[in-house]
Amino acid sequence: MALSPSARRWVAPVLISLPLTAALATFVAWRRPDQPFWLVVAVFTVVLLPTVATGLKVLVTDRATTDREIAAHQHDVETSWVKEAGSTAFFVLIGGLIFAETLGDVLRLSWLSPVGLPHVLVLGLGTFAVTYWYERRSAS
């Protein structure tokens, strides 16, 4: 059975971290003579393995990940504009909808309280577009 590329990146970190974790668990078990030895080894290995493997994966594959991210243009200024615009649109959308609904309730304006999908789309997309345009203009 062939492993997917993302699964293959986990093989080396897991294989390296397994003996490391087992050795650490053995040391812990040795320091706890009152506890069942193999139970302590098994529990500590299972609990520590994900953390150690993840840490090793970051260390082992970090450079490759960075290269892939740069190749995928994830470090371009345009990506930062999209992130900024998306973040702003999200918060304006949440805040704007809460504000509209609250204002509609307080002022008893029936047309303001119910917010429909068109309002959400206009507010969200409008905010995204304006923020993206502003970011682009500021950086150019």
Binding site: E69, I70, H73, H75, D76, V77, A139, S140
Partner: peptide
């Protein structure tokens, strides 16, 4: 050469965009 857009280089040169650490290393 860096694998980024030309606009990215322009923005960095003008001090309008701080590159990520991986890009700064590159």
């Amino acid at each position: 050469a860096l694998g980024v857009s030309r606009q990215t280089v322009i923005s960095i040169e003008r001090g309008r965009f701080d590159p990520s650490l991986p890009l700064a290393f590159r």
